[in-house]
């Protein structure tokens, strides 16, 4: 019986619960609604709008990772998390590097 309890507890930990999915979904909806309300109604403009957009997008990424993809519940050693961080570093270098280099291209031509 005790073993069964532990087993179901393990299952619960690594696959999330209905509660965590619902919380994740509601947070995602809110984080999608915020940029829509703020930007389409011109409450924020220019740089501030870009910041609102990017922050809500990144927060939503985090919500999906934690509530839907169960990254938080991964056991040590956290290979999945490490692989993800490596991937994100590569993506950021590619994206920011491209913008930087190509931006300079336009300046010097």
């Amino acid at each position: 019986m005790a073993q069964h309890q532990t087993h179901s507890h393990d299952e619960h930990e690594s696959h999330g619960s209905l509660k965590s999915y619902v919380i994740g979904f509601v947070l995602s909806l809110i984080l999608t609604a915020i940029p829509l309300i703020f930007v389409l109604n011109d409450i924020v403009e220019g740089t501030a709008a870009n910041v609102v957009l990017l922050v809500t997008a990144v927060l939503q990424f985090v919500v999906q990772l934690f509530f839907f993809m169960h990254l938080k519940e991964e056991k040590k050693p956290r290979w999945n998390l490490m692989a993800l961080i490596l991937g994100l570093v590569i993506v950021l270098v590619i994206v920011i590097g491209s913008i930087w280099i190509m931006g300079n291209n336009e300046v010097y031509q």
Binding site: L18, Y21, G24, F25, S28
Partner: peptide, 11 residues
Amino acid sequence: TSSFTSGLAVL
């Protein structure tokens, strides 16, 4: 919503 329902499928 479909991301949420695929999670419900796993549950």
